[in-house]
Simulated assay, not measured.
Amino acid sequence: MKWVKKGLIFTPDDRFEWNRKGYASVPTVYKITEDRLRIYYTARDGDNRTNISFIEVDAEVPEKILYVHNDSVLKHGKMGMYDDCGAMVSHVIKVENEVWMYYIGWNVRNTISYHNSIGLAISKDGGITFEKFSEGPLFDRNYREPYFSAAPFVLKENGIWKMWYLSNTSWVEYNGKSEPFYHIKYAESDNGIDWKREGKVAIDYKDENECGIVRSCVMKDGETYKMWYAHRNLQDYRENKSNSYRIGYAESSNGIDWIRMDEKVGIDVSERGWDNEMIEYPFVYDHNGKRYMFYNGNTFGKSGFGYAILESTK
């Protein structure tokens, strides 16, 4: 594959309390019409809590911004709930006359840095505002997965809801900080709410240095499932360019058993600019015969997000 970068299209500002620290992390595409896309993203407020908002762009020319929303779309949970420290968008889909948002709920901890859970929020006004489906999360730790779950991507196929999600497998102490290890697992559901989790690993660590695999995006081309995701190493990944996030790629014949093909992904950091240190959190979609990828660059989305177009599949 070969992706051609088209550049940065949205840089966050700090006009409101809900986005005081900026960031436009985890760009998530939702098609409104054939000509218009809504891109949800995650900002941070003055207390470093995450908040979800969106912009709308021309589907053919995504750098043409048509609308910038001026508020967050989902309230934080009450004190003590799984999302009382913030909500981060992960995937948005249309379900009959509603818009469903699968999102990451955040808690700050004292023994480790944070805890995540997977939540669901539902919009009845076309995706402008959302209300939580429940006070508790869809996914939290259980006897098979004792740490945390996050970052779901959902595909509905032949009546089966399929989810690929981040699963935390351990915490380690590194340079005075608690750092999580996480890879990608697979789950199924009949209704998008009650999920069967059997601990099936979809994308595993490639070696002992890799510690973060996150934000899968899955498409099906013919009989082949294709996945894009972000991956990084443990050592100094915030400062060391060679260990920071890169985008990876894998293929599967059944959506469950995957073969990593990171060397074929066809996109890497730039020599200079907003994405010269890391690239991460890809979202891939097709429009009018073209394949697009939205992604974040430096500092996990603080520099904003841009996009690329697939030029060649070879």
Rank of each mutant, 00 (worst) to 15 (best):
K75H: 08
Y174C: 03
K196G: 06
L234P: 01
K226I: 02
M261E: 14
W164D: 02
I104P: 00
L166N: 10
F133R: 07
Y281L: 07
E251L: 04
L155A: 05
E34H: 10
Y229V: 03
D204Y: 06
Y225A: 06
K226L: 04
A43R: 08
R272I: 12
R144T: 00
A308D: 08
N70E: 15
Y285E: 01
K196Q: 12
Y147V: 02
G304Q: 05
T129V: 01
I104M: 11
G136D: 13
A150W: 01
T129E: 07
G297V: 04
K200W: 09
G212S: 13
S167F: 00
P152G: 09
H287S: 11
A187V: 04
Y40L: 09
I93E: 11
S167T: 10
F133C: 01
G86H: 05
Y186P: 03
K200T: 15
V26T: 14
S25L: 10
F54C: 03
F16M: 09
E179S: 07
G192K: 08
S134V: 00
F148R: 01
T28H: 01
E251V: 15
D268W: 07
T299A: 11
Y245A: 15
H183F: 05
W100E: 04
D190G: 12
M227I: 12
N168C: 15
K302V: 02
W274T: 11
K6T: 09
D83Q: 08
L120E: 02
D125C: 07
F133V: 00
D14F: 08
G22K: 03
S216H: 02
V201C: 13
E198V: 10
W106G: 01
M101H: 08
S303G: 09
Y165M: 04
S90V: 03
G77H: 05
Y225F: 15
I93C: 03
E251G: 01
D13A: 13
